[in-house]
Design a protein around this nucleic acid. Structure first.
Lengths: 222, 222
DNA sequence: GAGGTCAGTCAACACTGCGTCGACTGTAAT
DNA sequence: ATTACAGTCGACGCAGTGTTGACTGACCTC
């Protein structure tokens, strides 16, 4: 579902033929690269399958040999970005008690950097999410992971007495993640009221700390 | 820009002809009603101009007599909803000092009720905002008004000593409004991690109070 | 080295939805 | 009666999507 369907290569691999790189691998990469390049210039909806194909040096019908649709290309791109974000954020919350403020900042900053580096893809996904159930599902799954990670961290901080009780941890985690998502979107898209890109990490950090600890300067482990 | 172009009627009115309701008024309303009705069932992108026209008892070309595009219909619908929200929220922040918690709650609850009552339109706008500059502009303008109202309220609360200093009031106002928008979207759309519709007002209220006052129980006027 | 298989390719087609043009009708003011 | 205009729509052109069916060339197998 998530990965692009490349029937030919799957069959080949299954039968042990063509173990090395094939023409198809290059074409597939070329399509993905073309997509990310074109997305820097203009929105996803204004890019046609034909342009994607031409950009990769193939005809439109051939495009459909590699991807079932334009959306599937974006889905693959999104998959990579979220994997990158997951990798960057991984384990950051594990040793939260040592220095809560720095850890939370690291988490937010890493997401900011990853999304910022791939803003074209992220913005395109926000655009397509509304119309494409596949993208919606993938984003929901990814978000759910992040929500659960934050929820667990909040519960742990409360248990050790660093954070006060209050809202259900899950609701808090959903709201904070939602806030980040929308704030980053506004900042990167640049339309409507937005926080300056240079300030956004610190602003979000202050709000996270305030909501979780009710102070801007949470205590270290006692 | 925002209102639908109905050239015929404007001309008529300008020359003093047809002072009463014309056929055109009915058709226009019928199109809008059809749009809002169809939106309950399925997303905006899956509704064609033809359906809108048929639903209003006219042919597709005739639709274009009333609206320049499908998006313009949604724009008109959005305009009404935001006006309703503005009206509902109007003056709520004026006498904040009397009972901050209740006032903020009223503000959030009224937005919640308005958006909830027209969730189909709101969700459709979120869908189209990505591809339609007109909708984007309108939403940005509306949001800017709300951000400024909240910013002013925060400044006032700080000035009277009820709220502590901290983040720039504008950044705070942007972040809180962004949070609400995204959280409501998730709640009403029902995909991905979301806060239960019955709890969402209270969850948002707690977070607003915490972020603005660093307490859940802000003081009344001293 | 003849025949088979399969990755990879694309011209041509069918389909859907958008927006426009130009011709038409009915009503009401002059 | 003529003029004017709100209101209507059949028929068109256009752009983009996704599919079909036929082709090429590499390579494997006997």
């Amino acid at each position: 579902m998530t990965a692009p369907r490349t029937p030919g290569r799957d069959v080949a691999v299954a039968r042990g033929r063509r173990p090395g790189r094939s023409v198809g691998d290059d074409r597939e990469s070329a399509i993905l690269a073309t997509a990310e390049r074109l997305l820097q210039r203009r929105p996803f909806g204004e890019i046609s399958v034909d342009e994607l194909a031409r950009g990769a040096g193939i005809s439109r019908p051939t495009f459909y040999f590699y991807f079932p649709s334009k959306d599937a290309v974006l889905l693959t791109l999104l998959d990579r970005v979220t994997e990158e974000a997951d990798a960057a954020a991984c384990n950051v919350l594990d040793r939260l008690a040592e220095d809560p403020r720095s850890r939370w900042r690291e988490l937010i900053a890493r997401f900011h950097d990853t999304f910022g580096a791939h803003r074209a893809v992220v913005l395109a996904c926000a655009e397509v999410r509304a119309t494409n159930a596949e993208v919606r599902r993938l984003w929901a799954r990814v978000l759910e992971r992040w929500v659960q990670a934050v929820e667990a961290a909040v519960v742990a901080e409360r248990r050790r007495g660093a954070a006060p009780d209050g809202l259900p941890a899950r609701d808090l985690a959903i709201a904070l993640n939602s806030m980040n998502e929308r704030v980053w979107y506004a900042t990167f898209a640049g339309d409507g009221p937005a926080i300056d890109e240079r300030d956004v990490v610190d602003v979000l950090l202050e709000l996270w700390l305030t909501c979780i600890y009710r102070t801007t300067d949470p205590a270290r482990v006692g």
